[in-house]
Computed example of a mutant assay.
Amino acid sequence: MTQHTTRLPSATRRRTALVAGAAALAAADLALKSWAQGALVDGPIGPEAAQLRLAFNPGVAFSLGETLPSWVVVAFTSLITVAVAVAVWRTAPRSRATATALAVMLAGAAANVIDRADDGVVTDYLHTGWWPTFNLADAFIVCGGLAMVALSWRRTSPEPGDTPTTA
């Protein structure tokens, strides 16, 4: 009996890897949020300079939009997350660095939307003495975005398979 193995097209493999990576990172953040909600109820852990502290954010970055109805914030952040997911899916970048940056951003956005969906707030647990309390998903979004900016500076020619855009 001859066994045939079909190889997924490279774009499909890249998309699958991106989604799987984003899902794994989002799951890690959601697990930490769940842990924080149980372990940090009685108060912060650690020194003020780098502390685990339970907080809930009804807004987005730096509590922007915290006075808006929660459904507005959920809808807005969900739309942005879907837009990022569509961009990731459509581009399926060949560059591992670009793919990683996009997967990390998607993971953070998705984890925060999932966390916010139930009660309209995002669970934060990382605190420094000089910065607002945040979570791993927030760090994913920021680091992924910074990586994309850095990658755009170093990229001088299109990736193989990219199609040029015209104005």
Rank of each mutant, 00 (worst) to 15 (best):
V82K: 09
F62D: 12
T77F: 04
I141S: 05
G65L: 14
Y125P: 03
I80A: 15
V82L: 15
R155T: 15
R53M: 12
A139I: 05
T100F: 13
R14Q: 05
H127P: 00
G108R: 05
A26E: 09
F134T: 04
V88S: 06
T166A: 05
L151A: 10
G46P: 06
S95L: 02
G108F: 11
A50R: 08
A17W: 03
I141V: 15
V122P: 06
A22P: 12
T133W: 02
E159P: 04
V19T: 04
L18R: 02
A111W: 01
H127K: 11
A31R: 10
G59F: 10
V82G: 11
P132N: 09
L54R: 06
A111S: 14
T16C: 05
V60G: 14
T2E: 14
T81M: 05
R116T: 00
T128R: 05
D42F: 06
R96D: 05
P69N: 13
P9V: 12
P47S: 13
D29V: 02
V19D: 02
R116S: 01
D29F: 02
A83M: 06
L106R: 01
G38N: 14
Q51H: 06
V60P: 09
S157K: 11
M1W: 02
G21F: 01
T165D: 07
H4S: 06
A23H: 02
P47E: 13
L52Y: 06
G129S: 14
I114Y: 04
L106A: 09
R90T: 04
G21A: 03
G43E: 03
P160V: 10
A103H: 02
F56Y: 14
W130I: 13
F76Y: 10
A103I: 03
A49N: 06
G43Q: 07
Q3Y: 08
W89E: 04
S157A: 15
F140K: 00
A75C: 11
W130M: 07
T100W: 08
V122S: 07
Y125M: 10
T81V: 05
P58A: 11
L30I: 01
S152Q: 13
W35Q: 03
A24T: 11
D119P: 00
F56W: 10
D138I: 05
